[in-house]
């Protein structure tokens, strides 16, 4: 269900004073309306809709910060996330989130969010923008070159090691299991890298 925001109506001073008197909750409470429900309403609040009302998509997310594993509901509109909240169904967080988890929308939409590939050439003093295709090609070639220049099949004593010590990888604890699986599979079983580590020791 989609609903658009109520239009902003320009009102005269007399309208505003009249509205204020009508909305003033004290007389209404004296008249018997509850301060928690009816008397808390105003002309403005009656028109307000929750942000997630506008969403066209909702998905289940898991909080990207610590390892408690709080479930989140993530609402999007037109391909942009508009709201993230704790999933009330979760037996872990039961709808709650901590200050970090509650900032998940802020993380996804932060002004500093990187959206382009930046490249710094050796000895340069600046970033340059590059295309994905160029960067992937260059990284693949550097990986192959570095591996091939420093690949060891056997140690001097004849023992097989089939490894390279010239390339390392750091990170994984913020990533999906499927991502860690492919990292270990390609880097270790495919390329023979041994310097593979993540945040488990820090």
């Amino acid at each position: 269900m989609r609903r658009s925001r109520p239009p902003i109506i320009r009102r005269t001073l007399a309208d505003r004073i009249g509205g204020f008197v009508r909305d003033w909750s004290v007389p209404r409470q004296i008249a018997g309306q509850s301060s928690a429900t009816k008397a808390a309403e105003s002309a403005l609040s009656r028109g307000l809709r929750p942000r997630l009302d506008e969403a066209d998509t909702v998905g289940t997310n898991i909080c990207p910060y610590c390892a408690v594993g709080c479930a989140q509901l993530m609402y999007a509109k037109d391909g942009r996330v508009i709201h993230v909240e704790g999933d009330p169904r979760s037996p872990i967080n039961q709808g709650t989130l901590c200050p970090k988890g509650a900032a998940t929308l802020g993380l996804m939409t932060m002004p500093e969010r990187l959206d382009k590939i930046k490249y710094r050439a050796p000895h340069s003093d600046r970033w340059e923008e590059r295309s994905m295709d160029w960067a992937m090609d260059r990284i693949a070639h550097l990986t192959k070159k570095t591996r091939d220049e420093a690949f060891v099949q056997e140690l001097p004593d004849g023992g097989t090691v089939n490894h390279t010590q010239a390339i390392g990888s750091l990170g994984g604890a913020t990533l999906d299991n499927e991502e860690n699986y492919l990292i270990k599979k390609l880097f270790s079983a495919g390329l023979g890298m041994v310097w593979i580590e993540n945040q488990a020791r820090v």
Partner: peptide, 16 residues
Amino acid sequence: RGHTSIQGSTDIPTLY
């Protein structure tokens, strides 16, 4: 543990 999938990245270890 401190990172969202630090247990996962030990189970499926990006560790040496």
